[in-house]
Design a protein around this nucleic acid. Sequence first.
RNA 1: GGCGAUGUAGCCAAGUGGUAAGGCAGAGGUCUGCAAAACCUUUAUCCCCAGUUCGAAUCUGGGCAUCGCCUCCA
Length: 503
Amino acid sequence: MKIYNTLTKTKEPFIPLITDRVGMYVCGITPYDSCHVGHARCYVAFDVIRRYLEYSGYVVTHIQNFTDIDDKIINRARERNVSPSKLSKQYEDEYFTCMDSLGIKRADEYPKVTKHIPEIIEFVQVLINKGHAYVLGGSVYFEVSSFPEYGKLSGRRVEDLLAGARVEVDEQKRHPADFALWKNAKPEEPSWDSPWGKGRPGWHIECSAMSQKYLGNTFDIHGGGQDLIFPHHENEIAQSEGYTGQQFAKYWIHNGFVTVHKEKMSKSLGNFFVLKEALSQYHPQIVRLFLLTTHYRSPMDFSPDKLDMTKASLERVYNLTDKLREMGCFGFDMEESIDRDNVMKHHPYPEAYKCVQVIQKTEERFKAAMDDDFNFPEALAVIHELITVTNKLISLLDAIDVSSVADNEATAIVAAGKQCLKYSACLLTQLAENVLGIRVQRERLGQGCNGQKTLTDGLMQLIIDLRQTARETKNFQMADIIRDRLKALGVTLEDTAEGTRWK
RNA sequence: GGCGAUGUAGCCAAGUGGUAAGGCAGAGGUCUGCAAAACCUUUAUCCCCAGUUCGAAUCUGGGCAUCGCCUCCA
């Protein structure tokens, strides 16, 4: 398995610190507002990465933080006249609602800043003791010049940062690039006691302190959006490596942005799609699949018509799994599809044997794609080819009934073919569903989360209209049958002067 | 100003030295009472220019275009 490492800007063989175990820290959200589609991309991407690592035999420890105290939360809470903790809780809940619907597996821990103040204070104190930080007016700053490797992740030099002239120039700091580890409390702000007075953690310190607590000084994978490379992750490295003197994360994985009309989706540009709204219009499975159609490091442009294309391709999956389910092909283990190769070799249709060969290579090709820096689109292509060839095999097996093969031979061949179809079903379940997280059994894709209700309403209206037609043509027998059958299903019809209603 | 990314068919998107995966859309055909699904056939020489090479979308140099980070941001 190879992973593109932002730190080295190359694809590197993945070698975990401990055989068969992977520690992965993914930067979570600051819960002060609703998630947008960009968040979904990030967490879907790392969900698939996590699933693939598990599929590959690793035991993964996945940690993802909530930065639940910060300027943005304080300000927003003040605007709404609620407590910061209540505000952050609201958006944490919303986060889980959205991500659960997308089929994202829960991380092992979701540590919060406010629950780790002692660890953070200790971390800051060590940095001061080691000469990496200094106290200034109740705040504590990291001294960038004390960490010569500063800039190694983002490829920046401190001198260049100054040339940009966009670094906030704090009159007090020793150097403009120094950043806050601990912020002196302003009046009426949430604060905690510390050796430097009342205050709260700076932005980057929580990830250093909490990743260390849950994953140790050095761990395998640290991930997040590309916009976190600088300054967030750069600063994390400075803090953590300044503290431990050891390498922080071995592999840095960063996902690309979601754009709208080619521009980054962001709060400040106001061009973002709120995730929960996107999910109410498009089924979460469509959104999830869409997010996998582009390599995780490339930018991807979001637009409704692209989701429509994705929806069509997902229907294609269901069209096949409908057939496989009707044929009783699901629910078997890989091992049960034995001997298909031998029998199919003598299939009277050589085309069928070719199908089998393609099916047999699916898993290997899927792995090759995913092993190459998690190439989601390539892996999806493999799945689509599996679907095509499985459909083809079904067609060929259908045709065998009318062939001139001897009965007993035809039976054996059809049985072998069926084994192949079971194998296809296994592959779809294991690869598409378990690894990519695309559920392969048909779901109503109609109208996002509201689809079920809308469909039911529509169907009921259709039945009522048909029954009304029967009543108008005096076909009361049919009308009564409809009413009785619905009653048996727990649906009651009421004919009123205003029309028929159901409950 | 510094650093970086991208430019492949109508649309989306893989491929990073040997003559272009896959999906969506389109066209023709098979099947079908009709439709749908499925199957078959079909739709590109890879932004431009120069160079390296037997051979480049794939490497080098130069353009053009778009975008990102350097300020909160997945």
